[in-house]
């Protein structure tokens, strides 16, 4: 049973696997603003972002019993679902989307998620970690993660050899992991 919204994510997913719909509502309350932001960034389309957001939580509901805490956090599980769905959508398109204009803060549909228990500490931490990367590495990582560009697409966009793209991407991700508190990595990596 839910207990005043203080349950850890893993407990919520456990409740969800048993069919507790309030657990899904709580997870949606906690993470839909972040996932929606990710989907808007990836798809550059509000309509498609809403559609994939729906699909993501429906898939989370159906696959809750498959979740294993030792294999990652609930957010990683949810964001992986959402990102994979968005990547499939991006790859089914003939052309890359144009950049969506900045969110209209006055639109009720685009209200910033400031009402939730938003902790800016995490955002600052991740942004700082990204800023510590080489700017070109950071750009490659963001284009691969958010835009779903393949190695060959990145090589063409940046006029760089395929091997260089692969090397820089690996370096960027390993450094990001280190800057976010994972194992240390040498600057030469």
């Amino acid at each position: 049973m839910l207990n005043g919204g203080v349950e850890p994510d893993t407990a919520l997913l456990s409740f969800l696997a048993k069919g507790d719909e309030r657990a899904l509502e709580e997870l949606y309350r906690r993470y839909s603003p972040s996932l929606y932001a990710l989907l808007l960034r990836m798809l550059q389309s509000r309509e498609e972002a809403e559609e994939i957001l729906q699909d993501s939580f429906v898939q989370l509901y159906r696959e809750a019993a498959r979740y294993q805490p030792e294999r990652g956090s609930v957010t990683a599980f949810l964001f992986t679902i959402g990102r994979n769905l968005a990547l499939s959508r991006l790859r089914s398109r003939k052309a890359r989307p144009q950049k969506l204009e900045d969110h209209d803060l006055h639109s009720p549909d685009q209200e910033l998620g400031l009402w939730r228990e938003d902790d800016p500490t995490d955002r600052i931490l991740v942004r700082r970690a990204l800023q510590r990367l080489e700017p070109s590495d950071r750009q490659l990582l963001e284009e691969a993660f958010f835009d779903g560009f393949s190695h060959s697409e990145l090589a063409e966009r940046h006029q760089l050899p395929l091997g260089t793209i692969k090397t820089r991407l690996r370096r960027a991700l390993l450094k990001l992991r280190a800057y976010l508190g994972g194992p240390q990595v040498s600057e030469e990596a």
Partner: peptide, 23 residues
């Protein structure tokens, strides 16, 4: 560990509340 680091990238974005129709 790598997946965990990658899936923190969305945290770099300001959260956006989806419209109520999605829920």
């Amino acid at each position: 560990e790598l997946q965990a680091a990658l899936m923190r990238l969305p945290e770099s974005l300001p959260p956006v509340t989806p419209p109520p129709r999605v829920w």
